[in-house]
Amino acid sequence: MEEYKTLLEDALGFKRAVDEEGRVVDEELLPKVSEGEIVEIYTYMVRARVIDSWLLKLQRMGKVALHAPNKGQEAVAVGAAKPLRRDDWVFPSYRELGAYLVRGMSEEEILDRALANADDPLKGSDFAIFGNRKYNLVPAPVPVGNQIPISVGAAYAMKYLGRDTVTLTFFGDGATSRGDFHAGLNFAGVFKVPAVLVIQNNQWAISVPRARQTAAPSLAVKGLAYGVPGVRIDGNDVMVVYKIVSDAAEKARRGGGPTLIEAVTYRLGPHTTADDPSRYRTSEEERIMERYEPLRRMRKFMESMGILTEKEALSIEEEWNSKVEEIVRKVLAKPPLPENVFFQNVYGEKPWFIQEEERDLEETLKTMEELGLSYKE
């Protein structure tokens, strides 16, 4: 009974190491990382904030089709991805730019993908979201929650093959209302797969508030019904995110099974660039929640610990603003994908009908050019 009491306390509680003013409130929840690693973690969060702001600008300029802003949620993506090994697998949703950067992806690669230019590593074959085998980073699906059972299946494969590899899955609070979540959690609990499942509870599933999705006292508690321990944490405290995910990953490697982590955070921007949050929440709510945002907290924490002054921390942001602006200029100057790109990367050897369609396209484009009909901007 004592074990179940502890499980309930973890799933219904609220763990944090650092409060919104940067004060350490629980030293046991501080990860054992060096000052240099703390600065590195902060820098990843800054980079995620900067590239996110540029993607938003580029979408407004008509250069990017769609973007799901990350502002306010950087601590979850960075803190969860940072303690992983290179051979672990990450299954993101569409709001984890920080995890992409931690895994080694560059801002230029992210922008190439978003603009679908000649260097787009996916060559225009996906809608809007990146992934790459080179980083053990699976492309995120657009449908909410689809990655959950897939990631659990991958974790089962790792266990079956006798590897100590872990899968890390990100999804929003809205995904817990989908069947994929329940099927995935049930399978994970039954087969005790080496998976860490992180809920980015940003309080809003597009326009639906958390209170309208479930009457459960927390989202983490849902894991207990499937035999998956749940932990509820402050998702704006990157230190506690790192610590809890690190512990969950190591437990999974030792054969201890999966963990469901509810990271309580807040989406400061719209759901996507197609969304208008003023229709369902107040600007006053957003203003209040700015106080809890993770970069502000991290700056105050580092200053209180004597690691960096606030001025030094802000200079990192200025540095990356300049760096990313140069990258944006470089990416915008690149040519678009070739017109015949959708005939590529499908067949190892193109069948006759594909070759015929490709020739037809080339002839059509040539005719249009001869007639002075433009099909480009």
Score class of each variant (00 low, 15 high):
residue 208 V to P: 01
residue 93 S to K: 00
residue 197 L to V: 10
residue 164 D to G: 14
residue 114 A to S: 15
residue 143 P to A: 08
residue 150 I to C: 02
residue 74 E to M: 00
residue 87 D to N: 14
residue 86 R to W: 13
residue 103 R to L: 04
residue 76 V to A: 03
residue 174 G to T: 11
residue 193 V to A: 00
residue 78 V to W: 06
residue 102 V to K: 02
residue 126 D to C: 04
residue 102 V to G: 00
residue 112 D to I: 08
residue 135 Y to F: 15
residue 71 K to L: 13
residue 116 A to I: 09
residue 84 L to Y: 06
residue 72 G to M: 03
residue 169 T to E: 10
residue 70 N to W: 14
residue 152 V to N: 08
residue 128 A to N: 12
residue 184 G to F: 02
residue 80 A to T: 04
residue 120 D to A: 11
residue 82 K to L: 15
residue 83 P to F: 05
residue 191 F to R: 07
residue 191 F to S: 01
residue 202 N to Y: 09
residue 178 R to H: 12
residue 167 T to M: 12
residue 170 F to L: 12
residue 140 A to W: 03
residue 209 P to S: 11
residue 156 Y to L: 14
residue 147 Q to D: 02
residue 79 G to H: 04
residue 89 W to Q: 08
residue 177 S to R: 09
residue 125 S to C: 07
residue 107 E to K: 00
residue 182 H to L: 12
residue 68 A to E: 02
residue 75 A to W: 02
residue 127 F to E: 13
residue 115 L to W: 05
residue 116 A to M: 15
residue 92 P to W: 04
residue 85 R to C: 05
residue 175 A to W: 01
residue 80 A to N: 05
residue 195 A to W: 02
residue 190 V to C: 10
residue 186 N to T: 15
residue 122 L to R: 06
residue 168 L to V: 13
residue 108 E to D: 06
residue 207 S to Q: 10
residue 102 V to M: 01
residue 137 L to V: 08
residue 176 T to P: 05
residue 166 V to L: 04
residue 188 A to V: 09
residue 199 I to T: 10
residue 144 V to R: 06
residue 198 V to D: 01
residue 70 N to P: 00
residue 149 P to A: 12
residue 189 G to R: 10
residue 194 P to L: 05
residue 114 A to N: 11
residue 94 Y to M: 02
residue 189 G to K: 10
residue 70 N to D: 10
residue 88 D to P: 05
residue 150 I to A: 14
residue 136 N to C: 11
residue 123 K to D: 07
residue 101 L to Q: 09
residue 101 L to N: 08
residue 168 L to W: 13
residue 97 L to C: 00
residue 205 A to V: 07
residue 201 N to M: 04
residue 175 A to K: 02
residue 131 G to E: 08
residue 191 F to T: 00
residue 188 A to W: 06
residue 117 N to P: 10
residue 91 F to M: 02
residue 185 L to S: 07
residue 112 D to S: 11
residue 183 A to T: 09
residue 194 P to R: 03
residue 208 V to L: 14
residue 170 F to W: 11
residue 92 P to C: 04
residue 142 V to S: 15
residue 127 F to P: 01
residue 129 I to K: 10
residue 118 A to E: 15
residue 102 V to A: 01
residue 93 S to N: 12
residue 135 Y to Q: 12
residue 156 Y to N: 00
residue 95 R to S: 03
residue 130 F to V: 10
residue 88 D to T: 07
residue 76 V to F: 02
residue 180 D to W: 05
residue 185 L to K: 08
residue 100 Y to D: 13
residue 171 F to R: 07
residue 194 P to F: 03
residue 73 Q to M: 15
residue 178 R to E: 15
residue 93 S to C: 05
residue 210 R to S: 13
residue 207 S to A: 14
residue 121 P to K: 05
residue 156 Y to D: 02
residue 98 G to P: 03
residue 93 S to A: 14
residue 162 G to L: 09
residue 139 P to D: 13
residue 99 A to M: 09
residue 200 Q to L: 14
residue 105 M to W: 04
residue 203 Q to G: 02
residue 188 A to F: 06
